[in-house]
Amino acid sequence: MLASINDNPPILVCADLQVEYLTPGRRHVILDGEAATARCLELLTLWRDNLWPVMHLKRIAQAAWFNPASRLTDWIAETKPRPGELTFEHPLPSAYSSARFVDYMSNIRNVRCVLIGFSLDETILATAVDGFHRSHHYQVVADAVACRQPGAGDAAAYKHAVVNVVANFATIQPSAELIRSSGAVAV
């Protein structure tokens, strides 16, 4: 079923677009950061140009490797939330660990969100699973998400495996298809 994106645009959810994930030498730096960031910026620009709803998620964990006082938790400059764009900080992997996020999402009819960003294997996966169990519909843009390096093994195979798991709880879509749809998106 296709619906006009202009009539009822989905919310673009930008997950954990923080400097921390792009800083070389960090334990959880993502390998395909430049490509994923470029796709995220392309989609974020599309949403902003059309004045469609944008939401930002920021992981504020208490783990020793994630210091919330550090400048590394800052937004990537180009993705920094603008006035009118919602932001939610969450302590656990799922955005639903934020009471404000749960309250906001429970007050929206026909929740449809497009998920992009970093921490595919944590925030995006956990949020898609939690949303699925609340009957919220998520689309994950496969080429606009990234995850940290696995402890061992091939990073591309790890990302592919995580995307396959996410596909059990959300629709997987490439950015080109979402952009090309120009006026209609699958619901």
Rank of each mutant, 00 (worst) to 15 (best):
I30K: 08
E20P: 06
A128F: 02
L92M: 14
G33Q: 10
D16I: 07
R48K: 10
P83Y: 11
C113S: 14
V114C: 10
H56S: 01
P9C: 08
S106K: 15
T23I: 09
Q62P: 05
A69Y: 15
R48F: 09
H56Q: 01
L44H: 05
P10S: 06
N8D: 08
S98Q: 09
A126V: 05
A38Q: 10
M105G: 12
D130G: 13
G33N: 05
S98M: 04
D16W: 12
F132A: 09
T127V: 03
T37W: 13
I30C: 09
V29K: 04
H28N: 11
T45Y: 15
D7G: 07
I5W: 04
I116N: 07
A99K: 14
D32E: 13
A38L: 09
E34G: 06
L115H: 13
E122H: 01
N110F: 09
A69Q: 15
L72R: 14
L57Q: 04
L92N: 12
I124P: 01
C14K: 04
L43H: 06
L44P: 00
D49C: 07
D74H: 06
A126E: 06
Y21C: 09
T79F: 11
E122D: 08
R39S: 14
R82T: 01
I60A: 12
R100G: 08
L12S: 03
V102D: 15
P83R: 12
I5Y: 01
H90A: 11
R39T: 15
C14G: 10
I5Q: 02
N50Y: 05
T23V: 14
I30M: 09
I76D: 04
A36S: 02
P9T: 07
